[in-house]
Each structure stands twice: as C-alpha cells, then as structure tokens.
Design a protein around this nucleic acid. Structure first.
Lengths: 172, 172
DNA sequence: ACGAATTACGTGACAAGTCATATAATTTTT
DNA sequence: AAAAATTATATGACTTGTCACGTAATTCGT
C-alpha cells in the first residue's frame, strides 16, 4: 500500500469512528439490515415481498381492513399499500370490496389462498421475532422502544424549528 | 360510524398496540422519519439529495476518498455512491481521478463549488445534530447506540440460522 | 340543506436502497 | 511467470418508501 493510500486509510478509519456515533446513520443501517434479512427470509419460504407479507399479516390478524388502516398499523404511507393490492388481488391472495357504510373505504379481505401464502411464511417470521425476543431482555426491549419513541417525538418537535432556524441564523 | 366500522376501528387499535412493540417496524419508521426530515432540510437550504449531502460531508471532512471508502463510512452499498457521482460531477461539486497507486480506485475530490454547496447545507444539518444531542444525555445516547449495535450483531448472527431453520422445522 | 373542508384512495414522479453481474486492476498461489 | 482469486467500480433490474395531486365520498358549519 502506497503512502497516499495509507494516509487515506487512516482518514477513513477516523471518519468511521466519528460516524459510528451518528444516530441518524446508525438507525438507517440497522433498519436497512433488518429489511434485507426479512426480504431474504420471505424469498426463501415463498414469493412474498415485504409489503405483501405485512399486508397479509395484518389482514389475517385483524382483517378486513381498509387501506388507511393498514398504513396506520404499519406506520407507512397509504400509497405503498394501495400500490401492492392489485398484484395481490391478481395472485388471488386478497379481495377488496368498497365498504357499504362508507364508500370511500376499500376493505381488504384475505382469501384462503392468501392465508396459505401467509402460513408458509409465518413460521420463519415468527422464529425471527422469537430469536429477537431471546436476544434482549424485556427491560432492554422496553428501553430500546422507549428511546425510539423519544427519537420520533424529538424529530416531530424539532422539524419545524429547524426549517425556520436558517433565516433566523442569518438575520440574528 | 356504523357498527362494522366501529368494530374495525377496535381491531385496528388493538393491532396498532401490538405493532408498537415490533422493533423491526419501529426501527423502520424511525429511520424513515429521520430521512424524511433530512431530505426536507436539505431541500430548504439548497438542492442536495441526502446521498449527495453525505458524500460531500465525508469528502470535505476526510477527502479525497474512494467510492468504497465512502460506502464503508456510510454503511451503505457502493453502488449507491457510484451512481450519485456522475450527477455531482456534472454539477461541478466534485472531480474524480483514478488513483495512481491503484488504478481501480476512483478518488473523489471536492471542488470549491462543492464546498460552497456543502457550506450552505451544513449549518442546518449541524443544528439538527446539536438538537439531537440536547434531546438525549450522553448516557442515553450510548445506551441507544449500544442497543443498535447489539441488534445489528444479532441480525448477522441469526440470519443463516433462520434461513435453514425452515427445513429443520419440517424434518425434525 | 348547501357549500366548504376533510378524508380515502389511486397514481405519477422521484429518491434511496438492495443484489447480481460484467470488466478491469491487483494480489495470491502454485 | 502464469493462473486463480480477490477487489474496485459501474450499471441494469428491482423493491421500498416518499410527496403531490386528482377525484370521489363524507362530514361540518352556517
């Protein structure tokens, strides 16, 4: 390794050390790794995407649900759910029916085929959750979730401040 | 609200309560919210995407860096970095030069223009980090980061087990 | 009871991230 | 020194997620 490369490696190591403490980056990396694992597991047991799996899971456990319901439970955008439905319908996993009570709602029902697809994936996904529960004590998990909640609250509270702070910083 | 809708609302509430304790989902939601905030802030101060911002930040602090270096620091895939470079080059933020020592390495250098773009965004991004540092004590942050590290380690350790556990569960 | 605001859903446009694969340069093995 | 393995980069194909906007249905205010 040349001396330039050696110096660069030192800079990289130092920078890595810094960024290891960057919560924003660390959260992103952890959540990405988690999604990648889930995707891999789903691929190994069937043909479900993560989005499809989550929709099946929720509707099996608590269905029928509207698009908005599912998005709320998953803390995601309704469009993500909405977009997954036509594919799931054409695969025969679900049916959707406008609610008689409120015709804006499109209620998602699982079919027998959808339930079978869910049941193929469920054991591994359950094992995954069980393994996680074993890796952390109940106290630790509570602490972890509490910190995440505080982080989210913090984001919500500071977002508007930060967006206007720029002009303040300039004018003050 | 009709009785069907009321029953559905109850199921949703119960399901939400369950999923609030789902670390996988919670991490994803938190990291997504964080990225959304960063994207918004960057948009308000300039025209940088998150990826461009991170690349500028790293190269300003520790450049010149290779594609691989940057990916390592950001715990991301090298292709994400690689793909962002042509645009940044054409905007005049960076130049890339094959390393003389190892011609595989493409070294990213920040230009004066790139540095100015960085400096426009930097104050808000710094304020963001400062606000976060105020929201958590040093101890809490250490705990948080430690839990994330353990989560990542856990994922790495269990991934292969889980992928094969399926066949075991069937055969045993 | 009518007009205004809200809510639900769908869809286009985009950013961010992955993996697989190809190619070139380097290092390791024999 | 040639062959084999590894490493760095680039790129195509894909999933996941956002936001903005349009339209239809509902609710709210007067």
């Amino acid at each position: 390794m040349g001396s330039d490369a050696k110096a660069r490696a030192a800079r990289v190591a130092s920078r890595c050390g810094n960024q290891d403490a960057n919560l924003f980056l660390r959260l992103l990396a952890a959540s990405t790794a988690s999604s990648v694992q889930a995707q891999r597991l789903l691929k190994s047991t069937g043909e479900l995407t993560i989005t499809e799996w989550r929709i099946l899971w929720d509707t099996v456990e608590a269905g029928p649900l509207s698009v908005q319901d599912i998005a709320l439970i998953q803390r995601s955008d309704h469009s993500l759910i909405s977009r997954a439905l036509p594919g799931m319908r054409s695969k025969g996993y679900i049916t959707t029916k406008r609610s008689a009570e409120d015709k804006r709602n499109s209620l998602v029902h699982v079919t027998a085929k959808g339930r079978r697809a869910y049941e193929r994936a469920a054991p591994v996904m359950k094992a995954r959750r069980r393994a996680l529960a074993k890796a952390f004590t109940a106290d630790e998990m509570e602490t972890f979730l509490g910190l995440i909640t505080r982080f989210e609250t913090h984001l919500a509270e500071t977002s508007s401040d930060l967006e206007t702070s720029r002009s303040h910083a300039v004018s003050v």
